[in-house]
Amino acid sequence: MREQVKRQRAKLIAGGMLSAAVIGWGVTGCSHDDHDRCVDTRDNTVIPDQYCKDTSTSTGYAHWYRGGSGFKLGQHVSGGEVGEHGVARGGFGGHGSSGGEGGGHGGGEGGHGG
C-alpha cells in the first residue's frame, strides 16, 4: 500500500500562480516602503511617518501615499494614490535575509551545515 501512495500523482499542476510568480520575480531588494510616505491630505505634503501610524482621530488627515512624485518632508505629492491611516508597516523583516531553511541559495541548512 505504501508503494501505491508514493506513486499517486494524479494531479500535478505547476501553473497558475506559480508561473505568475516566476514571471514576475525580480530582485526588488529591501525597499522597506521607500515609495510609501506619510502625507497631510489637507495640503498634500509629506509629513513624518508617525502621523500615519497614529490611530487617534486628531491625525485623521495623515494618510500613506504610494507612487507619483514628491518624497521628501514638506514636498508636495501628486500623481500617486492615497492609502490608509492608522496602520504601521515595516515592523517585520528587519533581519534582511532569507528566512528559509535548507534550499539552494537562501537556506543551505543541511548536512553538517549548521
Binding site: G29, S97, G107
Partner: peptide
C-alpha cells in the same frame, strides 16, 4: 522575506 534576493523564499511561499 523580500530581502532574499535569490527569490527562494518568494518561490517557496508562492508554491
Amino acid at each position: 522575506a523580500e530581502c532574499d534576493e535569490s527569490g527562494e523564499d518568494f518561490m517557496t511561499s508562492s508554491y
